[in-house]
Amino acid sequence: MRLAAPLHRLLELVDRPMAALQRRIGPQRFAWIFLLPNLVIFAVFTYLPIVLNFVYATTGGLAVLPSERPFVGLENFASLLDCRDYLDPSSCSKDLFWRSLFNTGRFVVLQVGFMILFSLITALVLNREIRGRGFFRGVFFYPVLLSPVVVALIWKWILQREGVLNAWLVAFGGEPVQWLLDAGWSFFWVVFVSIWAHMGFYMLILLAGLQAIPKDVYEAAEMDAASPWRMLTRITLPLLMPTMLVVVVLALIKGVQTFDEIYVLTGGGPGSATMLVVQYIYETGFAAQPRLYGLAAAASLLLAALLMILTLLQLRANRKSYRG
């Protein structure tokens, strides 16, 4: 607490004017003073941007200031959604948007599916009576804390042409592979690396769910001489279902928003093989010349609609899990 001494002195300095303020407005209304900073920041950096997003999405031109932008109605949305065949990105006028959308769909299905599978297996293993359980829990969780840039650079170093993975491949008689320059492989590694980086989080939540299952259920099953496999499929998994549902939807919401680690690892390449929607928004609004704010805002509103649906799913999953 000694470290906080300067902070204390600062707060003490604030004390006198605060007391004077309280005498003027009364103790009950003082609650608004406590709320004020938080609300102002929310208003400026969250609520206002939501409104502005609609303004940007319905205006065109290259100006940054909304007042200088001509109103174009739904033109941005129309050009994003302009496709002759919705299953074929190259028939769309914004083919990159559709490619990134398809990539995101493919990425999310693979990433969430395998990530939940591996986190479940890991959580089941760690839920056993095992030595060094805390240590291994930490091991699987550690990559979650690493920054996306660090994660991407670690794997870039391993996957580069003269990297350690190719060295092993050669040692076992194979040919070196340009992992990140081949469309198929680079998609595989993007999914792999993002599972590597995030599965610890979901493992932890599933583990908490497993440990919340009452022990006496298992004791009763053991009395009935139930096999371990039967206990897993008839007791553990059904009782874990509510947690599982929450975890899946959470992973979907996060998965759709994936950007950082892929952007640093592959830059969306080769070509646009690993470009996801958020990177499309970033490229359109900030990296490309000219910066098309309107198009980027329209794309982000479409993304928001998708996330809203997933969030509603989550709320339903939550409600179910509370009911038990």
Binding site: T46, L48, P49, I50, V51, L52, N53, V55, Y56, I253, Q257, F259, V278, I281, Y282, G285, F286, Y293, A296, A297, S300, L301, L303, A304, L307
Partner: peptide, 8 residues
């Protein structure tokens, strides 16, 4: 999510 309000 912060990614959605990036532009504004």
């Amino acid at each position: 999510p912060p990614t959605v309000v990036l532009v504004p």
